[in-house]
Design a binder for these strands. Structure first.
Lengths: 116, 116
DNA sequence: CGCCTATATTGACATTCATCAATGTAGGGC
DNA sequence: GCCCTACATTGATGAATGTCAATATAGGCG
């Protein structure tokens, strides 16, 4: 016969985490924070918005400076952060670099929130 | 007779945003960035994880210092940021303050990502 | 090979942020 | 009213971040 542990009822008002409930560890939290840091800048959010609306593989760096009113090195900097956060894909053709949103990347981030 | 504007076909390879595609404005991006800034810290992610797992209205500040190994003022600081980002609810009872995750708050953030 | 353009990197600077110690505020017990 | 505890705020500090100018790297054309 399989026995299950008897759980004592929680009677006091002190804070308690339900038995077995997964709470985020420090290392995992640091990893997840990387993606949210990438999203924690208005310009990067706008970059993602532009790339989401554009045809995949059709957006180059020089097309992104004007909409954001940022210098080319700054845009390159932000794109690098989004790239390293795993949100973008970069396709190089000669000296040109074309960026696109990785399909499902933002859904994965949404999934992280659901699984907190 | 109602006339519609004729759209020129896009023939060059320069980046273009499909007609009518919504792209995030600077002001809206700043507002959305506030929430992601709130999520862009490992300790705040862990706070949310703890609060999500706990019974609503059962978690006080002093219960959060030990799991995160942070001082009470630091925890209070982080809770304030999450509160102002619209993710938490605070219920004061005397000198005690009990925090809980606003139901649907993280789903709303996930919705922001979907609507980028 | 020289030159051009696109992009990435570096360094400097200003701003933002996380942390703590110190302290203020508030509620409650005696 | 005093004292205690819980919590919020302030100020200081060091780290992290965003921006630009300058520059390096890379590919391609003549």
């Amino acid at each position: 016969m399989k026995l299950l542990p008897v759980l004592e009822p929680v009677t006091d008002e002190s804070c308690c985490v339900p038995a077995g409930a997964p709470v985020l560890g420090a290392d995992e939290a640091r990893q997840q924070a990387v993606v949210f840091k990438a999203l924690a800048d208005p310009n990067r959010l706008r970059l993602l918005s532009i790339l989401k609306a554009a045809s995949p593989g059709a957006t180059c760096v020089c097309d992104l400076t004007e909409p954001l009113d940022l210098s080319q090195p700054t845009v390159s900097h932000h794109l690098k952060i989004l790239l390293e956060a795993g949100l973008l894909h970069r396709e190089k053709r000669g000296t040109w670099a074309y960026f696109s949103l990785i399909p499902g990347a933002l859904d994965n981030v949404a999934g992280v929130l659901a699984d907190l």
